[in-house]
Design a protein around this nucleic acid. Sequence first.
DNA 1: TCAGCATGTGTACTGGCTGTCCATATGAAG
DNA 2: CTTCATATGGACAGCCAGTACACATGCTGA
Lengths: 197, 197
Amino acid sequence: MSETAQRRGRGRRPAGEVREGVLRAAAGLLLSEGIKAVTFDRVATAAGSSKMTLYKWWPSAGALAAEAYFAHSEHQLEFPDTGDIRADLTAQLCAFVRLITHEGTGPVLAGLIGVAQTDPELSAAFSEHYSAPRRALAVAAFEKARDRGQLRADIDLGILVDQLWGACYNRLLIPDAPLTEDYAVALVANALDGAAP
Amino acid sequence: MSETAQRRGRGRRPAGEVREGVLRAAAGLLLSEGIKAVTFDRVATAAGSSKMTLYKWWPSAGALAAEAYFAHSEHQLEFPDTGDIRADLTAQLCAFVRLITHEGTGPVLAGLIGVAQTDPELSAAFSEHYSAPRRALAVAAFEKARDRGQLRADIDLGILVDQLWGACYNRLLIPDAPLTEDYAVALVANALDGAAP
DNA sequence: TCAGCATGTGTACTGGCTGTCCATATGAAG
DNA sequence: CTTCATATGGACAGCCAGTACACATGCTGA
């Protein structure tokens, strides 16, 4: 698991080397045992490093977990753009549902969001490196669709993001109802066509 | 703060009396210092009780916090029913937004949902006593509206719940965009009328 | 090439929280 | 009133966060 368990002794080590080892160890713990396992103590032990080093570089265990997650899983950010917003949205949202219903990803993502509620540093890192860029990308795609005349000009595109991805996050975080690809398909239809007759 | 700090000595005490004191102490900690302050240790100390007692009655500190929250704040469950689903929804969602943007409620609710991601007992309690009943109530209101012809017959009403309340929860838990009453109004319009031209 | 320094690193320690064991005071049953 | 079952409380070990201090090593200047 941790191939660099033997310490090299005290003193200074190349920063990048230790940093990479710590992130690898954190990612390993995060993916195998969940967010609760990502503590400074355990990561330091697994990386053959010292807690003091981690405290110097990361403000909280949650922030470390977030960086490890983002570095480990460079998920695709590109938004398909075939010119048909309905098809593009359906494809993108189905892919998103597949991602967050995957056993190794959904709980980890949910755990990160969960800890973010009481860890401001993790919250900031999550927003900066994950949620905000993805929101911006979706809004940009919506703007192009609106310019093509596929979306009404008078609606707030940010709201549309919440109605689609936010709805999925809701079923991930508050699992009172199932989260399936059929759900994603129906979600797109609902959002575009409306619920009124 | 805790008027019953003096212990009555060892031995058995009336269960209801202790239980109520514990819940009061837990609610106090939850509302004043947040979910992180609701630990078995601190609640037991504040209630003048013993940790062992808490372990016997609650499976986790999160479950205790949830029960304290639900018992302390018996939020209104009634759904307005004036016959106009658009007006009723707007009123209900605005009230919801007011509730979760209130300084003393929003962070607490977000904290509970956050901890629920890694606390199965809290997750179950939250679903059973909070989210599921509210979802059922909303779906019931939607069914009445649909029978009145105010909603299309072919849509999944559960999805509509996610698109409205889920969108709000999304802005509560992943605060990349502001959460206002204007937002709630626009949300209802979007959900009912759709985003397509 | 080598010495000195600044910097990052490791050890040790305190304090808080979790989860459990065991003695015991008390409410309830007979 | 006596006896018993049971809830209660104190104590304890283990894990983790966060900090203070000693020190080895990579870098810089001569």
